[in-house]
Amino acid sequence: MYEYLKGKITQIAPGIIVLETKDGVGYRIYPANPYHFEVNQEAQIFVEQIVRENELSLYGFATVTEKQLFNKLLNVSGIGPKSALAILAGARPADLVQAIENSQVDYLTQFPGVGKKTAQQIVLDLSGKMDDFSTLVEGASATFAEAKEGKQAANRSNLEDALAALEALGYAARDLAKVKKALAMETGSTSDLVSKGLTLLVQG
């Protein structure tokens, strides 16, 4: 019935938020993470209305992607709205999609209420049906690769600076060559690498 609601967040509590629209109606919404929002924040919340025998509830999401994933999870036997929210609250959308497509059952069992049998059911019901999220995963993979490359570059720079500092302290090139390989396996600031290098050099 509803695609999204716009208004001001007037209340945040564990498990719920209240969104007051311009017509003065306050909607009680169950989000994946209520603390993603702030009181008095103007927000557009994507919502899914679930109607059951004794219940009419609105589930809310910060992005349309989260809403789409929520509906995908509801198609899994044994997954209800609360379980789907718990999964979305604890996973990045791209990680969740990758876990499903790669049959990573152990990853899925980390969420509340998801045992091994349910995790296997998620994979069985949704694997191969996540094409709508392919660009999401590709973007996340690219971002991860860029971050990894940047971190490796920083580590190389820190290593070079640490070796230069050790050389300035009077250590010979042949001694530095002995510890370079060990330092290359370490991560940390230049200062951390210098301290580790000194320890290795003293140990000889």
Rank of each mutant, 00 (worst) to 15 (best):
S134Q: 13
D192C: 06
S83T: 14
D23V: 07
I9N: 06
V114L: 08
K129A: 05
G90F: 07
N158D: 10
E186Q: 14
D192H: 10
G139P: 01
V194C: 04
A165V: 10
E146L: 15
L159C: 02
A154D: 11
G24L: 09
S77P: 01
A172V: 00
A177D: 14
L126N: 06
Q44H: 04
V39S: 03
P93F: 07
A165Q: 08
I100L: 08
V202A: 12
G188S: 10
L163Y: 05
L193Q: 06
I50E: 12
A13F: 09
L200H: 03
L183V: 04
S195Q: 13
S103G: 04
T21K: 07
H36A: 15
T190P: 03
L169K: 04
T10H: 02
G90H: 05
Y171P: 01
V137C: 04
P93I: 02
A84C: 07
A168E: 10
G150F: 11
K82R: 15
P81R: 06
V202T: 10
S157Y: 10
Y107T: 12
Q104Y: 00
L200Y: 08
A119T: 01
R52A: 08
D132S: 12
K180T: 12
K196Y: 09
V105P: 04
K180V: 00
A184L: 05
E167Q: 14
I12G: 06
R156I: 10
T143F: 11
G115I: 00
L166M: 03
K151E: 14
G150E: 12
E55V: 08
R174E: 13
S57L: 13
S127R: 15
D132H: 08
G24M: 04
E101K: 07
N158F: 13
K117E: 03
E66T: 00
L136E: 06
L108R: 00
K196A: 14
I100K: 00
A164R: 11
A154G: 01
L58H: 01
T118D: 00
S195V: 09
S134E: 14
Q120Y: 05
L73A: 05
G7V: 08
G115A: 08
N102T: 15
A154H: 11
M130T: 04
E55R: 11
T65N: 05
G60S: 03
A182M: 09
N75T: 14
K72E: 13
G78K: 01
M185N: 12
A162Y: 09
L124A: 11
R52D: 02
I45A: 10
D106Q: 14
L163V: 00
T143A: 15
G113Y: 06
A153R: 13
V97E: 07
E38K: 14
V97Q: 06
D95T: 06
F133C: 09
G188A: 11
A119P: 01
N155C: 09
Q44V: 12
A177R: 11
N40L: 13
Q152E: 15
L198G: 08
N71L: 15
L169H: 02
M185L: 15
V179R: 01
I45W: 05
I100D: 08
L163T: 00
I87K: 01
Q121F: 05
A119Y: 09
T187G: 07
L193V: 02
L56Y: 03
S195W: 00
L163I: 14
S195E: 13
G7R: 07
Y107A: 15
A99Q: 02
I29N: 03
A43E: 12
I9G: 06
I12Q: 04
V114S: 01
N158Q: 10
K6D: 13
L19G: 05
S77C: 00
